[in-house]
């Protein structure tokens, strides 16, 4: 198992260096978005409006955290199932989105778009939200506040442990029998 440390935002060069099966620690800024935020971003794009975040070279974490207690940065913060975002994902990849953190399978359309746009898909461990929350050092709602847990948050993460499941060449860890 190869361990790597990367900083986000990141560019094609960093992405090309990540291979399916790599164990990666992510440090930097990531944005949270799940079902409702994706739907809203997608509708905004269709209407020709700007997105509330610049996705270029950035990484989205499919996460809807539980509420933070006093003194906590965030509550439990593990990944949600990525497949529900598949319908909306290619249009974000076309805008330069470089990374996604979630869990579970992606459609061929998403994988094709990842290859075309040089992007990487990471899995964080599903059901380890308490542990993963320890890697989140700052959290701030920056858009769609009315969506509650589904709002877009800007997170500062430190050594968030993830695994490259699908790399930019389309190699897929879930397909290894």
């Amino acid at each position: 198992m190869i361990e790597k440390y990367i900083e986000v935002p990141f560019d094609d060069e960093v992405v090309k260096n990540l291979k399916a099966g790599d164990y990666v620690y992510i440090t930097g800024t990531v944005y949270t978005a799940r079902d409702a935020a994706h739907k809203r971003m997608y509708e905004a794009l269709q209407k020709g409006e700007n997105l509330p975040i610049d996705v270029k070279n950035n990484c989205i974490y499919y996460l809807g955290p539980s509420p933070a207690r006093e003194g906590q940065v965030i509550g439990s913060a593990g990944p949600t199932t990525s497949g529900r975002m598949d319908k909306y994902t290619p249009s974000l990849l076309d805008l330069g989105l470089k990374g996604m953190i979630g869990k579970g399978k992606r459609t061929p359309a998403v994988i094709d778009s990842m290859k075309k746009n040089c992007a990487v898909y990471f899995a964080a461990v599903g059901g380890a939200g308490a542990l993963l929350s320890k890697c989140i050092k700052e959290s701030e709602v920056i858009a769609y506040d009315d969506l509650g847990t589904e709002a877009i948050r800007k997170l500062k993460v430190e050594k968030l442990p993830v695994i490259v499941v699908i790399d930019c060449e389309g190699n897929n860890m879930y397909c290894i029998e």
């Binding site: 539980s66 906590q72 439990s76 059901g127 939200g129 308490a130 542990l131």
Partner: peptide, 13 residues
């Protein structure tokens, strides 16, 4: 961690 700090085991409660 979840037990000690009363953080939900998973964010999907």
């Amino acid at each position: 961690i979840a037990k000690e700090e009363k953080i939900p085991i998973c964010q999907d409660t």
